[in-house]
Design a protein around this nucleic acid. Sequence first.
DNA 1: TGCATTTTACGAATCGTTTCGTAGACAAAG
DNA 2: CTTTGTCTACGAAACGATTCGTAAAATGCA
Lengths: 128, 128
Amino acid sequence: MQQPTEGELAILQVLWATGPSTVRTVNEALNARSKREIGYTTTLKLMQLMADKGLVSRDTSKRTHVYAAQLPEEKAQRNLLRKFVDTTFGGSASQLVLRALGEGDASAEELAEIKRMIQSLENKRQHD
Amino acid sequence: MQQPTEGELAILQVLWATGPSTVRTVNEALNARSKREIGYTTTLKLMQLMADKGLVSRDTSKRTHVYAAQLPEEKAQRNLLRKFVDTTFGGSASQLVLRALGEGDASAEELAEIKRMIQSLENKRQHD
DNA sequence: TGCATTTTACGAATCGTTTCGTAGACAAAG
DNA sequence: CTTTGTCTACGAAACGATTCGTAAAATGCA
């Protein structure tokens, strides 16, 4: 499965958040979150291309087609994360983590969850 | 200061890693880490454009010009990280951190450093 | 001096992505 | 039945980024 472009990713975000949707729904969601107005047929075309690539499926049984994400959000995030770590943190995930935490927008509970995550990783290491 | 494109970022990586460099040095470094052969004049052109934008400075006192990154690595990382968190993790930095840790390529020391980071963040919260 | 090499400069071609205009099918409402 | 609006399909324009060919200047060497 090919990687989504930036525009495709924006559409996938909508589909992930709201589930299977029509072009109109997606287009309105995109325009809700951006100053720049995106034309309806632009969104349509992009979603058609995504269907060709297999990034989304579409139900054409009704006149108004319904699209659904085919690429799972987690998988996309893992792929993009790997590339991002490579290209902007020279492959060091922990450097990225430190920088991300440094931005300071993680809540107390989130910090706690991250600590739990680290704990479980360290436990796992014990057993190797 | 404008954001670097992907190609520009690859060049900045070299400059950050090895300090001020000539076009040839950068071009060879790029080609060392990629199957796809990048032509010399391609790298040259890109670096000239970067100089125009102010992403790099250049010393033209000698015939062979020497380029230096103007955008600090940390700043670039912060900017790109913010955008990345928005576009692929819906703005949730901690989601990204969890996913990054889950990849499991952080060493024991790195985990320890991350724990320290969290500790210091939590201490700071106490005082607010 | 003359030849080969290396460099900068720069216009233009190419390429992938995004955007849009237009046409035709269909549906709903009067 | 006709009008109006919404939908898909699709070609092509527009755009930004990258790549390259070529020329001219400088350098080094035989």
